[in-house]
Nucleic acid binder design. Sequence first.
DNA 1: GTAACTGTTGACGAT
DNA 2: GATCGTCAACAGTTA
Length: 634
Amino acid sequence: MAIKPRVIYWFRTDLRLHDSPALAAALDLKPECLWPIWCWDPHYVYRARVGPNRWQYLLDCQQDLSDSIARLNPKSRLHVLREAPQTLLPKLFKAWKVTHLVFEKDTDAYARSRDEEVMSSAREAGVQVIVKYGKTLWDPDAVVKANGNKPTMTISQLRHAGEKVGDIPRPIPAPKSIPDPGNMPLDFAQTQPAPEPDLNSIYRTRKENSYEKLAGPNGDFAVPTIEELGIKSATTPHRGGETGALAVLDNIIKNEQYTATFEKPKSAPTAFEPQSTTLLSPHLHFGSLSCREFYWRVQDVVDNFKGKASQPPVSLTGQLLFRDMYFAAQAKMGWKFSQTVGNDHCRFIPWHLRSKVDGPDGLVTGEYNIDSVEAEEWFQRWKTGRTGFPWIDAVMRQLKQEGWIHHLARHSVACFLTRGGCYIDWERGAEVFEEWLIDHETACNTGNWQWLSCTAFFSQFYRCYSPIAFPQKTDKNGDFVRHFVPELKDFPAKYIYEPWKAPIQDQRTAKCIIKGDGTVQTIDELPAYPKPMFDFSTRRDICIGGMKNAYRVGLYGNSPKVVNGSWPSAFDDDAEGTTDGKNISEQDTLEVETHRQIQTDTNSKADSLKPMNKNKRKGTGTLEGFLRPQKAMK
DNA sequence: GTAACTGTTGACGAT
DNA sequence: GATCGTCAACAGTTA
């Protein structure tokens, strides 16, 4: 007699019941029992730097899903187990007499290695594994295959490949019932992770005790609270969970005009309360909304729309195509997609603050070289919202506070940090977004930073965002700045984007003095706002010159000179102050230093030119960086 | 092979 | 205020 299926459904970032091909496959087995579980992975708890807002969003999604499961079957819920899946699942297979393991396929580099390990232990245990795909419109691996086994680098490549792969599947309704979970004996030893390095220590208010008990502090497999994680309270108004996601989607779909005529480039990055885009991206990241549900709900409105509907790529469905493009590029390139060095599709630009690369595989270590004191100061001022450019600072403060900023605001601050202002490595900016965005998705974040820095996907570096003119197009009065940079709230509209131009009398009337570098809080008992950290148009010209030269040199991340560190020799004939770098051997450092002395004569910023190659910053590494195989982290 | 065209989202000044 | 050409100019796609 056949054994009745005893199924573990392993949730990851597919935290929903509606349109889950993998969950549908699990239920098709007509299992005797089904355990919905989440493995509390130390790679995320300790090794990725995640701000409180994204932690809260994840917990919201888990709790909402758990409640929804319990509504379908009061005996069930999302069972959160505090252990890494690689060590936990083999023990569960045995202890719970599991016959099947079902999960949704992931194609990012860490997930692939994790899932390979889990699938191999399942094979050894005689457990059948069922993997279905539902994260993007098409399976990225199928897209890559249809694109001639190459990463999709343009939207037209993605569209052609998508057509070859086939129709976008219609969503699957949420299940009406969920089988009981079986017994859950935990008569085995818990494998506790090493708590160090804990990249989230800066966010913890007290000792983190996720791993004290396998089934949580009360032994009931409950979703952890943010207090249990010892993480500071979230400051974002945005909340996670499938129930909320579907309600937001309903509201958008109800507005046929908005849904059918949406054009991303025409939406205002300065709009807040409400914002001008859907804010569904964090739900797509955590899987609390299915992108196929989103796609078809929108497409059905467009198909029935009487007026002139917008078209991809600017339309709502077009946004999903970009997501698929980045996922397929990442699926093909693996770990190397998220870094410059070793990446054959990413141009090499001799930015400041480049990532440190190490190990036999040439992967980034999570550290970077401070080759310029000035650039490091600019980077810190950018990150903390005190550049002295109100638009840039408002966006960066919104990012930290709320964990979400408009797509074009991301463009603006990314351009400013890299090719259109600071000439700092895009990987530094990507790390900050990774830490603070509630919708952070490695594929999209990396792809968009490469796009904006003109290192891949896009190359028109002479199109540069102005921190003054760009926000003025949609917010003449500067309401967005007044909200997020409240010390400027009483400045006249004439000066709101360039307050340093206001006469001192106007500054006093507006009760804010423009002085210093942002470290001074008050001047003459009035609040202070910093002076701009550089002259924008001068920096823009320097950066464009640097980009032009770097394009002429034509190095890519996999060029031998980049991999072996001899790239400065390719830039010797150029006098741009932006093309020097010291992330190289002592010999090369000397050469660069000589090169710099010549420049110093015409450059008063001599301090920034001191060799700093031993001065490196620790612990700001990317998620990908710290999720890489241990051997690559040494 | 070559040239023209096109590319989700620039700034600026003229009309 | 909306739309246009220019700025100086990249690279994938199409004819």
